[in-house]
Design a protein around this nucleic acid. Structure first.
Length: 563
RNA sequence: GCACCGUUAGCUAAGCUGGAUAUAGCGUCGGUCUACGGAACCGAAGGCCAGGAGUUCGAAUCUCUUACGGUGCACCA
């Protein structure tokens, strides 16, 4: 039930459409005033009446009905209270009917949304700087699928560039097979860090690295074999983390995949007269648009990031025919995206408008920025492990008899890591601290999961006692009503999250709803209530659990039955 | 220097297209255990929404401006 529209339909204000009225309907700051309100101030001028008078007149003209239980005029506001029982019936029926699809809606009609996220670099370990793109992308992937789109997850691997020359150089100098087989990607990373340390003293190493990279490009068997091995190791390592985080990809086409797809882009740019030589490089001049030039080819003729990204965008359009292509990449690259989006537009690709840079804030450490080269990083796996360990300790302390303790600890610990990264607006910078990551109190996934466990526990006891829920609905109390309204808002919340590319909306919804459930839970006895009330409350409890599971599920967080 | 982003309680943050008393969590202090799971709940203290100007009946929200912080600005990705 769309109450705003319903109210608008029953109001007539001369010169204003129903649509406009519906848009003007707002939610008052507290429930005592009403559930919806129409501020009448903006109508005063052309109606030549005071807002107070307008509200009063509208109130008197509003027809009595079943859906709205009370209409009042207060200080120029027209306040509405909805029929609580009606709302309860509506929401509970819908959640019961839709179950794990509650909140879903076929908005997309199967249209494709490409999502470029996580995009790890080969031979670099997964650190907390990669967390945001990974979990944001993963959440958006699920959200769009939930809304009837066909999401295509793309891990645009960083598997191309001089850094691999450096790595091979370092490996040949200081590494060996056993070292890497035992130490895995972290050992590889140490080699990389060492290279940079040594290269400061011996700059000739840089030349060696460039030579090795050239060999890869030229298809040198030994170098390529080494490179493929590094790639395999990296994916194996990273996949462990993806699996724990519940992240999936449909494509791992990375930078090297586009090696042979850039020349046509360059040719097309040249044909269209967009390419221009400047300081020895081939550029597209963007001065007219207030941007520095987009460099297409370096002065030595080799390609760049932007060239590859354009080739990738064109490939994706041809392959997937996307409705939108989202790039979940940190805001540092704002200019880069603006540039190559613009160049594609200048090339006459009308779909360039469907490319979206979903920018998010940076992660730094308390002692400054992270740097893979300097080895100043916190590995994501370490953070996850610590959270899981802490969860296990707490379970051991509070609920030692619990079965599957390790499994539950995994759900709780991983959930905390994911939720922490999704709870705030994505654009905000984050200073990582273990204290914050390991906090399980208050506005956290653990709180929400705990709330679910409480709800599940009540439902289990009810089932054991043979209590049935019924289709009848009681007049909701204040707490019950607040909870019901929260549950009713979930579908809108999912759509808002999708259109703003903000999974945090859903994370906030989870905490808000859990808070309301806990208030209800404390004030309203469920199992000890009289038959009719108990049946209603059980249904409300079940609906809450269903909704929270759906919401957390979209974020990639599992809900244990007990914890 | 130019561009983009940020600035809300001691700390971390919500606040949707301008609307009624600015909202949570953490921390602090004080309560609720004869418990449908205390990883919970209630209460208190804590605010010139960075400063200034403007638009408006009405501004944390829109515009301009200043300050502070972050990021980016030609051959890295």
């Amino acid at each position: 039930m769309d109450y705003k529209r319903y109210i608008a339909k029953h109001l007539t204000i001369e010169g204003i459409s129903e649509e406009e009225i519906a848009e003007a309907v707002a939610v008052p700051p507290n429930t005592d005033m009403g559930d919806y309100a129409l501020p009448c101030f903006k109508f005063a001028k052309f109606m030549r009446k005071s807002p107070v008078q307008i509200a009063e007149d509208l109130k008197n003209a509003y027809p009595a009905d079943e859906v709205i239980s009370e209409v009042s005029a207060v200080n120029g506001y027209l306040n509405f209270k909805v029929n609580r029982k009606g709302l309860a019936k509506d929401v509970l029926e819908r959640i019961g009917r839709e179950g794990e699809r509650y909140g879903a809606f076929d908005l997309g009609g199967g249209k494709v949304i490409c999502l470029d996220y996580s995009s790890v670099n080969i031979a670099k370990p997964f650190h907390i700087g990669h967390l945001s793109t990974t979990v944001l992308g993963g959440a958006l992937y699920r959200i769009f699928n939930f809304l009837g789109y066909k999401a295509v997850g793309i891990n645009h691997l960083g598997d191309y560039g001089t850094q691999f020359g450096k790595l091979i150089s370092a490996y040949n100098r200081w590494g060996n097979k056993e070292l890497i087989e035992q130490g895995g990607i972290r050992a590889l990373n140490e080699l990389y860090v060492r290279f940079h340390r040594e290269a400061e003293k011996h700059p000739e190493l840089e030349d060696e690295a460039r030579a090795y990279f050239k060999k890869i490009e030229d298809g040198d068997k030994e170098c390529l074999a080494l490179f493929d091995w590094f790639k395999e190791l990296t994916l194996k390592d990273v996949n462990k983390v993806y699996e724990r985080l519940g992240i999936k990809f449909d494509s791992y086409a990375g930078e090297s995949f586009y090696q042979d797809k850039m020349q046509p882009v360059v040719d097309e740019l040249r044909e269209k007269g967009l390419l221009k030589e400047s300081r020895g490089a081939q550029i597209v001049d963007l001065e007219e648009y207030g941007m520095s030039p987009c460099i297409i080819l370096k002065s030595d003729g080799s390609s760049l990031y932007a060239t590859r990204d354009m080739a990738a965008a064109i490939y994706r359009k041809q392959t997937y025919d996307f409705e939108k292509c989202l790039y979940v990449v940190a805001y540092q690259q704002n200019l880069h995206f603006k540039q190559f989006f613009k160049v594609l537009e200048l090339m006459g690709k009308e779909w360039a408008k469907d490319l979206v840079h979903v920018a998010y804030g940076m992660v730094s450490l308390e002692d400054g920025a992270m740097s893979t080269r300097k080895g100043n990083v916190i590995f994501l796996e370490d953070v996850i492990n610590q959270c899981v360990e802490k969860a296990y300790r707490i379970i051991d302390e509070k609920n030692a008899a619990l079965e599957n303790k390790a499994d539950v600890a995994e759900k709780v610990g991983v959930g905390a890591v994911v939720f922490g990264a999704l709870y705030n607006s994505k654009i905000k910078d984050i200073v990582f601290s273990y204290d914050k990551a390991l906090n399980f109190d208050g506005e956290t996934s653990v709180y929400v999961q705990y709330t679910c466990a409480r709800a599940a526990s009540v439902l289990a006891k009810a089932a054991a006692a043979g209590y049935k829920s019924s289709d009848e609905v009681c007049e909701p109390s204040a707490q019950e009503f607040e909870l019901l309204k929260a549950l009713a808002s979930f579908p809108d919340c999912v759509q808002a999250a999708a259109s703003a590319y903000e999974p945090s909306y859903i994370a906030r919804f989870c905490v808000d709803t859990a808070q309301k459930f806990n208030k209800f839970y404390l004030d309203c006895k469920i199992l000890q209530a009289e038959d009719e009330t108990r049946a209603f409350r059980l249904r409300l409890t079940q609906a809450t659990l269903t909704t929270l599971k759906n919401a957390l599920g979209l974020l990639g967080i599992a809900v244990p039955e007990k914890m």
